[in-house]
Simulated assay, not measured.
Amino acid sequence: MYGSGPVCLAHPGGPGIGWEYLRMPALEQQLTMVYLEPVGTGGSGRLPSHPHGYTRERYSRFVELVTGRLGVPEVYLLGHSHGAFVAAHHALHRPQRLAGVILYEGAPVTGAEHGEEAGRRAAEFAAKHAGEPGLAEVLAAFGAMAAIADDEDTLAVAKGVLPAYFADYWGDEERLAPVRDAVRATYISGLDEDLRPEVIDDRAALKDLRVPALVIVGRHDVICGPRWSEELHALIPDSRLVVLEDSGHLGHIEEPELFNAAVTDFVRGTGPV
């Protein structure tokens, strides 16, 4: 927990990625940032069914418990990447204590359609950086995703693909390499306790979302690109959409001033808490 002002819970991505990459020092000048360490990562412990059972519903229940412990009537919930899927679920099913939700690099669906779009954008990334010596390592990491089976594999893939998560990693490698080096990751299977995949489609439900919503996306995001944020924006009544033109999947690092302005303007616009 850092900063002061209205309380904002920040749920990292993955699932299984450590929270530290999501640290937002500039926002801490305006908000009380509570960085969640989701169950299964770091010191939060693991489920008896680990690496299975980490569903959105499970994460949402823990978000609700943390919210209750904070002693404030309402909070903002910022979810990044997989955390945005969790935040959307929480806003749909447990909206009572939410002043607003920030869906940062999310999507309304997973499954084949989402995978095909990510594959197409990854191919565009590869074509754009065809002469880059580090590209082969990134593509090998993408190819190894399907065979991940433990923490070591997860960390290697997370670090391996990370250059693709920035708009221009190699053009600013001196600044961005430490972010890559600091990544922590735990293997989470993506299956529920009965070993079934959790396939998400929130399109119908989001039309009835009544929590104030801000959608943020980087123009060059490979994993959850603008197509999905534009769809989230179209589905959610009265939502706001911010596109960071020079960012990939990590706009709070790539364009921190614009990112911070978008979040603080949203919080101010939804009233004091």
Rank of each mutant, 00 (worst) to 15 (best):
P73G: 12
T55K: 13
A99N: 05
E105S: 14
F62S: 06
Q96Y: 09
H90K: 06
S44D: 13
L70A: 12
A99V: 09
H82S: 12
R94H: 15
F62W: 14
S81G: 03
Y54F: 08
A99F: 03
H93C: 03
R58I: 13
A87W: 03
P108T: 01
H50P: 08
H93T: 04
A107R: 03
G68H: 09
V101I: 07
G71K: 14
G79H: 12
A99E: 07
Y59S: 12
G68N: 10
A87D: 06
L103Y: 11
G45M: 12
L47Y: 11
A107S: 15
Q96W: 12
L77D: 03
A91P: 09
R69T: 15
S60A: 15
T67Q: 15
P73M: 11
R56G: 09
Y54M: 02
G106Q: 02
F62V: 02
P108R: 07
V63W: 06
L103M: 06
G71Q: 14
L65P: 00
P108C: 06
H52G: 00
P73V: 10
L77K: 13
R94M: 11
Y54G: 01
Y59W: 15
F62A: 05
T110W: 01
H89S: 04
E57N: 06
H80F: 05
L78N: 04
A88P: 00
V66C: 03
R97W: 09
H90G: 01
A88N: 04
V101P: 00
E74S: 14
Y54D: 01
A91Y: 12
V75W: 13
V75G: 05
L98C: 05
H80E: 10
R56A: 05
L70I: 11
P48K: 10
H52P: 00
E105H: 12
L103S: 03
G53I: 00
E57M: 09
S44R: 03
S81R: 04
R58S: 08
T110H: 04
P51A: 06
Q96H: 13
H80G: 02
G111K: 00
H50W: 12
G106P: 00
S49F: 14
E113W: 05
I102S: 08
H89I: 01
H50L: 06
R56P: 06
V86N: 01
V66N: 01
G106V: 00
L77R: 12
F85K: 04
L92A: 02
G100P: 02
P95K: 11
H80C: 03
Q96T: 04
E74I: 09
T67I: 14
A88S: 06
S44Q: 05
E105T: 07
G45N: 07
R58C: 11
A99D: 04
P73Q: 15
P95D: 08
I102P: 01
H90T: 10
V109E: 11
P108V: 01
V109I: 14
R58L: 15
H90L: 04
H93N: 11
E57A: 13
G45K: 08
I102T: 07
R46S: 09
G100A: 04
H50R: 02
R56S: 09
E64C: 09
F85Y: 15
G111V: 00
E57T: 03
G83C: 04
L77T: 07
H82G: 04
S44G: 04
P95V: 05
L78C: 05
G53K: 07
V86C: 06
R94F: 15
A107E: 02
P95M: 13
F85L: 15
A107T: 06
E105N: 08
S44L: 05
